[in-house]
Simulated scan of single mutants.
Amino acid sequence: MRMSTWIRQHIAALRALLVLTVITGIVYPVAVFVVAQLPGLHDEADGSLLERDGKVVGSSLIGQSFTDGNGNALAQYFQSRPSSSGEGDGYDPTSTSFTNLGPESIVDTLAANPDDADQSLLTQVCQRSKTIGEREGVDGSRPFCAPGGVGAVLSVLGPRDAQGGVEHPTKVVSVNEACPATPFLGSYKGVKVECAEIGEDYSAGLIVPVRGDAPAESPVPSDAVVTSASGLDPHISPEYAAIQVARIAKARTISEAEVRTLVAAHTDGRDLGFLGEPRVNVLELNLDLDGRYPAES
């Protein structure tokens, strides 16, 4: 009797296993595949791939960099936002990541060997903004950024007062400007500002970011100088696209109005009218530019 009950229980378990295997392992995947082939869903299900001359050139869901072999921006293309995914120019879908740097990352690690140096988030933002400003012909200066494209940060050494400040400094160092650089500020509280000696530790001083006289709102938008959470965002803001229009028009010998028309055609509004922000798909826009207004080789 016991053996019979044991057999019946295991046969019932085996039947349940077979039924669930058929449902979840065969029926459900086939049903999802069939639904995905319906008109309007097929492209998305296959990865939203984009083709040019019969060849797959990318996906509308994953950004790309438009630079030369040395990492310099190609003048005839709209530039994507920075990416920290993978080596080189980023945008590696097998290595999606973010920098994990926050607003308190303002002091660089200086080193004689560039491979051992480490830029703070502030310096990365300052450097990118300066480069983009020079490339696009706009003011790339930002608050708390030195003219040289590094974070404007001082280490103020001296006795602390009751509030933790340093009223009478004995030494002031621009911690992100390695010697023999000329510091962005001549003096601070009557003390000459010095450049930073590589290998020296200035953490004992009071770390003071200096705002400078840059405008509060930079023509270079934030998405142009910081990475997205995934590092794969294929979009830029309409504001970043707008400051690139003149360069694109000149490189392709077309009018700025023609470029703006294409930008508008590839600009998506907020989802459902209120979710997210307006955005421009860079890869789709550049492909359309190549198709309509090929750049002279």
Rank of each mutant, 00 (worst) to 15 (best):
S141Q: 12
R81M: 15
T99E: 14
Q127H: 13
N100G: 09
T109A: 09
S48N: 13
G58E: 04
D108G: 07
P103N: 15
S85D: 09
P114M: 03
Q64N: 14
A73F: 11
C126V: 04
D115E: 15
L122E: 01
G63V: 08
C126W: 02
I106N: 09
L74P: 00
I62S: 03
Q124L: 14
N72V: 03
A117T: 07
A111C: 09
I106Q: 05
I132S: 00
Q124A: 12
V57Y: 07
V107F: 02
N70R: 15
V56M: 01
L49H: 05
A146F: 08
K130H: 11
K130I: 07
L110R: 00
D118S: 11
L121R: 13
G54Y: 02
N100W: 10
A117C: 11
R128F: 13
V57F: 06
P93C: 07
P82W: 10
V107T: 11
S80C: 08
T109F: 05
G54I: 04
L110S: 04
E134K: 14
N70C: 03
I132L: 14
E134H: 07
D118R: 12
S105V: 03
D115C: 00
S48M: 08
L101H: 08
T123M: 01
T94K: 12
S65N: 12
G133Q: 06
L110Y: 01
I132V: 14
A73M: 12
L101Y: 07
N100T: 11
S84F: 15
D108P: 09
G88N: 11
Y91E: 05
S97N: 11
A73K: 11
I106R: 15
L101N: 09
D108Q: 06
R81E: 07
K130D: 10
L74Y: 06
K55L: 10
P147D: 13
A117W: 08
G140A: 04
G137M: 02
E134Q: 15
Q124C: 06
D115L: 15
G86A: 03
C145S: 08
P147A: 11
R142L: 14
P93N: 04
P82D: 10
D115S: 15
A111H: 14
S95V: 05
Q76K: 11
S48V: 06
P114W: 02
S120I: 06
Q124W: 12
K130A: 14
P103Y: 06
G58T: 04
D116S: 14
D116V: 07
S97E: 10
G133Y: 06
G86Y: 09
S129I: 11
G54K: 05
R135W: 00
I132W: 09
R142C: 02
C145H: 08
I62E: 05
G71V: 08
L50W: 04
E136N: 01
T123A: 09
